[in-house]
Structures are given as C-alpha cells and as structure tokens.
C-alpha cells in the first residue's frame, strides 16, 4: 500500500490497512535492536526535533533512540530549557525552529490540538507525541502491536481500559485504534472519571472492576495523573486503589491468559500492585521495547519521499 500520511496526529485518521502497514514496517525494525551495530543509514542528513512542552522519559527517549538508530540528527527541546519559559508563544517557537529546516517535529504539548495547529503552519512533518487529554497515537500503535504479539488477533478480544478515562489521551487513542481493529472495549473507572459521552467511541462502561474483571483478555491500566487532576475526583488514593487498583487477589478472578498493560510511568501500589507490575503476564516492558521499533517505523515512513 502507499503510505501517504504527511503527519501522525490522531488514530482516527489511520485506517486498519494503514495501521497494518505500520506494523509490517515495524517488524523490520525490531531486528535492528538485536544487532551488534544498532544503526541503519536510512535517515542520514534528516533532522528530527523532539519538541516536548511536558515532561517525559519514555516517549522522548524512545523517539530519540528511534531517530538515532535511523541515523537522523535528533535535537531535544524541553519546556524548561526553551524560550517558552521566557514567554514565547508556541507558534513563534515553532516558526523559529522551522527557519532551521527540520524534517520532522515530534510534539508533546499540554493543549489538545497543538500538533494539529503546527501541522497547518509548518512545512515539517509532525508526529503527535501526546496533546493534552486528546490523543497519543504512537502509544496506541505500540500497545496494539504488543497485544498482537501476545494474542495474535486483535479482532474479537475484549479489552478493558481502567482508570482516569476523562483525562487520558492514551485511552482515547487506544479506544479508536482497538475499535478500528474490531476489538470489544470496556472502560472501567469511578463515575467522576468517565465522561457520559464516552459511549460515542463504541465502548462499554463499567464502574465496578471486581464485577467484570473475568471478561477481559487484556487489561490496560492507566496512570492516575495527579498533575492533571484539579479538585480530586475521588476521596483518596487509597480508596481509588481499593476499588480500581490491580492486585493479585483481584486477578484470581481474571481469565487465566489475561495480560496486563500500562503506558507508564507506573504508580506502584496505586493503580497496579508491585507484584502485578513485575509478573510474567505484565507486558509493561514489552510495550517500551515495541515503542522504539514503532517510532522507527513512523520516522522512516514520514522521512522518505521527495515531498519532504
């Protein structure tokens, strides 16, 4: 298939065929991580700027390693070290970066739509690395790939997304992607963290994890994002953990071949008990590993071609 997406902004733009193509391309890049020389020259001479207005370890490092393994020049800009801390607007920062002719901009921003705005103003290709509570498409791609590695077919699986659905860009991207692949999705969490309109994504809703845990093939736990919660939507972290935290006791009721995922960083003892996070059915580190390969595939797919 011809992959002619200039930007990766939202999972809703990507058809199932496009995602399959990305996965197929990703498979080729996995092998490179096992080589003694983990570098190929495909993006030699291309410049990738990681423009991160929010903190990140995993995603930024993952994009940086992906870019470097493809021989691109990767520049990292974080909010604290950028002119944004001097009051420069997003568009001004981006226009100034554009003047230095980067080829790909990887953008993380606290406001939904920031990458979309930049894609309209700049010539560079844009990859959304998380925009507010909107989307985190590369996370959804690596999550689906990880599920596929362990469950073969995504279609027909029943996937739970548990936690702060309202503020989660990971949940949004995953709901769209999983539905595109024909999986059944149920979001689980306290009423205060599940918006009424969520059903428009074609997902089921449950407020009681213990009651429905036996139905799921895959359980994705979300991080309680203290930095995004204003007035606490639940009485205490301990209460949240009692009702929606995943521990060994609760997992006894789950399917024997259930797998657990988490986009990280994990609040151990809050949404996931330490013994669960480190168990063999926990795919948390597989997700991270797949993240590099998926991002290599995307940088490669966006970095080629003469339209750049």
């Amino acid at each position: 298939m011809a992959f002619d997406f200039p930007h990766i902004l939202s999972m809703s733009n990507l058809s199932r065929e496009a995602m399959e193509f990305i996965f197929e391309t990703t498979d080729r890049f996995r092998e490179i991580a096992g080589r003694p020389i983990k570098k190929v020259p495909a993006l030699r001479g291309k410049t990738v700027i990681n423009l991160f207005f929010e903190n990140s370890t995993r995603t930024r490092t993952s994009f940086e390693i992906a870019g470097k393994r493809l021989s691109a020049d990767v520049i990292n800009i974080s909010k604290s070290a950028s002119s944004a801390s001097k009051g420069e607007s997003l568009v001004d920062t981006a226009k100034n970066l554009e003047a230095m002719s980067p080829d790909i901009l990887v953008v993380r921003h606290g406001s939904a739509g920031a990458p979309l705005l930049l894609s309209k103003m700049l010539k560079a290709r844009i990859i959304n690395a998380g925009d507010g509570a909107h989307e985190h498409p590369t996370q959804a791609l690596l999550d689906l790939l990880t599920i596929r590695d362990h469950k073969k077919n995504i279609a027909g699986l029943h996937v739970a997304i548990v936690g702060d659905i309202a503020h989660s860009r990971v949940a949004r991207s995953n709901m769209i992607a999983l539905r595109t692949f024909g999986a059944k999705v149920t979001v689980v969490g306290p009423k205060s963290l599940i918006p009424q309109e969520i059903k428009s994504f074609g997902v089921g809703v449950s407020y009681d994890l213990a009651k429905c845990i036996d139905q799921f093939d895959v359980i994705m736990m979300l991080r309680i994002q203290n930095e995004r919660l204003g007035l606490t939507p639940f009485p205490s972290l301990r209460e949240y953990s009692n009702f929606y935290g995943l521990n060994l006791n609760l997992l006894k009721c789950a399917k024997p071949d259930v797998v657990i995922m988490h986009p990280g960083p994990v609040n151990r003892g809050v949404e996931v008990a330490p013994e669960v996070a480190d168990a063999p059915y926990s795919l948390i580190l597989d997700q991270v590993k797949n993240g590099v390969a998926v991002r290599m595939a995307l940088l490669y797919l966006l970095g080629g071609g003469e339209n750049l």
């Binding site: 197929e24 391309t25 080729r28 291309k46 080629g304 071609g305 003469e306 750049l308």
Partner: peptide, 10 residues
C-alpha cells in the same frame, strides 16, 4: 531514499 516518491516495502 530521499528522492524516491513511493515508499518501498521493507
């Protein structure tokens, strides 16, 4: 690679 107009299948 930079000049190719179609994306090669890896």
């Amino acid at each position: 690679f930079a000049q190719s107009s179609t994306m090669p299948v890896l």
